[in-house]
Simulated assay, not measured.
Amino acid sequence: MKDGASFESYVHFVYQSILNLRGERIQVSKNTKFRISERESYEIDIYYEFLHAGVRHRVAIECKDWNKPVDQGQVLLFHQKIKNIGDELVGVFISRKGYQSGAIEVGDRHGILMLKEQDLPTLGQLLGQRILAAFIPEENCMGEPFWYIAVLDKREQAPDGDFYAFPESFPVKLPLFISKKHAEDYLEFLPNKNELKVYGMPQYKLRGFLASALLRNMPIGLVIDPPEADGKLLLHATDAESINRDFLMEPIIRPAASKGLHRWLAMLRRNRR
């Protein structure tokens, strides 16, 4: 990074990526100006805000791309700046070259999160986090609107990103359930049920699933009814393109190539074992 502007741009990219891993749509802005009065205004390097449980959270980030450690005076100036803007503003200070003696203590005393460049995730880590968020099942996710059966790693008993799929002879590749209970009822009929688990597919995971399914023109079976007494499913045959159009709130454009995505997924699955 050659100058302060490029460092700010990287920090902006990092926070924009982390805060929106699950499609939260939190807007992270650069060089945001706050006008306090006719003669008083302040500029914040990186700024974002979001609502959680009805409470607005506001965060200001100061970036220093200096060739020397930051001193206490700069930390105090930043503290005064955010105090003048508003008491509820949370401060984060990021320095490429670290801090002089006492600077971190000053920041801690005023509730400022003091970070160094090495505290930020790398581009590879960010991409890995995005892929994991999109493809790896997570507990407590609600189906929006689908539920699915995931394969568990035999040693870790944790999902590895693979879906339960029908045999190759089936006209559809895998089932997507409208009801969690129907999925759990069907799971009880499977001989390897201890190696499987039902998970919800929120919109951001549906988007990740479709990014791969569209590449393969994957045939999918929608399950609307409970399994029959013998465990058979009444499948409504459809495809990834139809689900993309009819169920994804913001349909995605069909990707052009799949090699890079599949390589990343394979690598992440190996690393989790």
Results as ranks from 00 to 15, higher is better:
L115G: 03
Q118F: 05
D119G: 06
L120E: 06
G124A: 09
G124H: 07
G124C: 09
Q125E: 14
L127I: 10
G128D: 07
G128C: 04
G128E: 08
Q129Y: 09
Q129T: 07
I131W: 03
I131A: 09
A133M: 08
A134E: 14
I136T: 15
P137I: 05
P137G: 08
E138P: 09
M142E: 15
F146Y: 15
W147R: 00
W147V: 05
Y148I: 03
Y148T: 13
I149T: 05
V151S: 13
D153C: 13
E156T: 12
E156G: 11
Q157V: 10
A158M: 11
A158L: 08
A158D: 10
A158K: 06
D162L: 02
F163S: 03
Y164T: 00
Y164R: 01
F166N: 06
F166K: 06
P167S: 07
S169H: 12
S169F: 08
K173T: 09
L174I: 03
F177H: 07
F177K: 00
K180R: 12
K181M: 11
D185C: 01
D185K: 06
L187C: 04
E188G: 02
P191H: 13
L196M: 12
L196N: 01
K197F: 14
V198W: 00
M201I: 13
M201T: 01
Y204V: 11
Y204E: 14
L206Y: 11
R207S: 15
R207Q: 15
G208S: 09
G208R: 04
F209P: 00
F209K: 00
L210W: 01
L210A: 13
A211L: 14
A213E: 08
A213F: 04
L214Y: 09
R216C: 13
N217S: 14
I220A: 00
P227T: 04
G231P: 07
L235R: 01
L235S: 02
L235T: 04
H236E: 06
A237L: 04
T238V: 03
T238S: 07
T238G: 05
S242H: 14
N244M: 15
L248C: 09
I252R: 03
R254H: 14
P255F: 12
A256S: 15
